[in-house]
Design a protein around this nucleic acid. Structure first.
Lengths: 229, 229
DNA sequence: CGGCCTGTTGATCTGTTTCAATTTGGGTGG
DNA sequence: CCACCCAAATTGAAACAGATCAACAGGCCG
């Protein structure tokens, strides 16, 4: 029987894309499919980093807490995204399912053993880490130097870019709450909400529902976000 | 004649630490030592990522600009730090020498060829990328959720941690200007300066000179920074 | 000696937060 | 299927942290 990975529709974009079909056999032997319901925690910041994950469906929220409870959302993961690069023996953030989520789980030890045999896999990981590092620095620029309006515009465009494969008519789905967005871009829920209404008044976006945004005015949004074209 | 790398005093902490003495021979053949004077630019954001660097002396400032000139400093590099992990065909930030700087330069193409022959090197890079990713997320938490005082305290402690090997009597040297610090932690020069005086009044720090800080009150600083002990 | 850059301090202003009150909408049970 | 309930979202008013504008002090270099 062939490896189930062969039929995986996100294989191309995921880590596994680094492997030839015949190598997938060995690879899939260490994989375990797993599901989480909306609201479940996948792991906590500080937990021993025992597993790596590949998200195959749904949306995962990554976050860190300060001792007094202030929260920073460090990212959202979607199908195809890899989870577990940022660790120093223990996880650097908490990962929670904000919708029902499907993942492939790899025990770290066995995964690392695979790296020795498949250098292409290690190259892929390094490339992914490089991309994540660049993305993290964009987020650092956003948090350190952008205004509320610029932050929200950038946030929406980031999501849009990642959903571009499945997006139609510039209609963007926001699985997360306003408070998730706020904790991601360093604002409060109220400010995020107010900024959405301002952007609506200026016709840069249209809120179909609180979780469905149409990006009218893409050009202006990019200008606001400070993107170089 | 033996490779000059053999005698390098930061080899243990740098990328090259992944290599056995006999491998260093091959490694050092692609390395070029280079120096930059204070104020010189090593490369610009957007430049084709042609080289990788290992900082062997001095302090390098990494920064990104918004189209209107607002600046975000994404980090400072010191001896032993690696430069060039975060790229997507072109550099994601500008790198400038803020003191006289010494580096080892590796042409990217040849460096990547080495990776194929020395998997230990690739492992090392992946580990370093992991650490940088975790550090970037700490910075994201700082920028998104910490107050001015907390930001400055965290900044000082971060520097102290990285200089811990060479630091005596909790005396911390700050090679960068107030404005560099401000652009790093998302504040203005004025606020950074005022925060330094406040921390001084509260006896958490003592400014020997504007660029020499003694960290009295380490415990309180850690509490302020929100570090878990 | 003079000019300039860096740092510090003061006064005022403003974007965002905080506190508070509604409104909306999705999910559930009758 | 609808009414109810509660969390999420929106909106308004007031407060505040940090930014901005401005003046000045100190150190360094030409």
């Amino acid at each position: 029987m062939a490896s189930p990975c062969v039929a995986c529709n996100i294989r191309e974009t995921a880590v596994c894309g680094a492997l030839a079909p015949e190598e997938l056999e060995r690879f899939s032997s260490i994989v375990m499919a797993q599901t989480f319901e909306a609201g479940e925690t996948i792991f906590f910041e500080g937990d021993t980093a025992a597993n790596l994950y590949n998200v195959t469906g749904g949306c995962v929220r990554l976050s860190k807490l300060l001792p007094d409870g202030r929260r920073q959302v460090t990212g959202f993961l979607f199908a195809g995204d890899f989870l577990g690069l940022a660790y120093v023996d223990s996880y650097a953030f908490t990962a929670e399912a904000i919708t029902d989520v499907r993942v492939c789980l790899f025990p770290r030890g066995r995964f690392q053993a695979l790296l020795d045999d498949f250098p292409a896999l290690e190259k892929r990981l390094l490339g992914m880490a490089s991309n994540e590092l660049a993305a993290a620095q964009d987020q650092i620029l956003l948090l350190g130097r952008k205004s509320a309006k610029e932050k929200v515009a950038s946030f929406l465009l980031n999501l849009a870019k990642r959903q571009s494969a499945t997006m139609v008519d510039n209609l963007l789905h926001l699985p997360m709450t306003r408070s998730d967005i706020a904790d991601c871009v360093g604002l409060t829920t109220e400010t995020v909400s107010r900024t959405f209404t301002k952007l609506t008044e200026e016709r840069l976006i249209t809120l179909k529902t609180p979780h469905e945004v149409e990006l009218t005015g893409l050009g202006d949004l990019h200008d606001l976000a400070g993107d170089y074209h």
